[in-house]
């Protein structure tokens, strides 16, 4: 019953062209992500300017160790993701699967640490509505956490496909684009960590 032009009957695309489109599309998408967080960063600086002491006070309640640990975890995961992309480009199946699995594991670590960080705070009554600092804190880290989850499903998909041997020297676009997204998630955290925990 389905005719040409429907979802599963797409006309054939040139793979090289599709790969290039896909990559430019991802870069544009990353720009929208930067602006999404940009609004929050703007709010951060405005409120920090108005309420410097509230921010100092709030920042001192944050666990620098856990924040730092998560920063390291994400940097390592970014590294393993870069290795995965490299493996995909060279067509090294095993190395690709291994590095994707490592990245996924680090992402999971990040979430666990975040859980240990948020849990006690929430149980001590430090909630998003406590003051403007914690509004910013929960909002930025929460949105970032959401991005980690999206990134994890992305990497999970890549892993499943890699196990089926979908990626090789001539088809690595998916991994590369997944890598771009994961690096963005990482970079946003690298900005968030010093702003919230250290300054």
């Amino acid at each position: 019953m389905s005719e040409p032009g429907t979802f599963f009957h797409l006309h054939e695309e040139d793979p090289v062209e599709a790969y290039e489109n896909f990559k430019l599309g991802m870069w544009i998408f990353l720009a929208t992500e930067v602006l999404l967080f940009g609004g929050l960063f703007a709010a951060y600086f405005i409120f920090k300017f108005i309420w410097p002491t509230v921010f100092e006070d709030g920042s001192s309640h944050l666990n620098k160790f856990m924040g730092g640990l998560n920063t390291l975890v994400l940097i390592f995961s970014s590294f393993s993701m870069a290795m995965a992309v490299d493996a995909a480009q060279r067509g090294q199946q095993k190395k690709l699967v291994r590095n994707l699995a490592i990245t996924l594991f680090f992402a999971l670590c990040f979430i666990v640490v975040k859980g240990f960080e948020w849990g006690p705070k929430l149980s001590h009554g430090i909630t998003p509505g406590s003051d403007v600092f914690f509004s910013v804190y929960y909002m930025t880290t929460g949105l970032h956490l959401l991005h980690v989850l999206v990134g994890m499903s992305f990497i999970g998909l890549l892993l499943a496909r890699a196990l089926k041997g979908r990626y090789h020297e001539e088809n690595f676009g998916g991994v590369e684009i997944g890598g771009l997204y994961w690096h963005l998630v990482d970079i946003i955290w690298i900005f968030l960590f010093p702003l919230l925990y250290l300054i």
């Binding site: 709010a43 409120f47 309420w51 998003p128 509505g129 003051d131 403007v132 509004s135 910013v136």
Partner: peptide, 10 residues
């Protein structure tokens, strides 16, 4: 109840 736009929370 976060306080971005609520004056009483800053």
């Amino acid at each position: 109840g976060i306080g971005f736009f609520t004056a009483s929370l800053g």
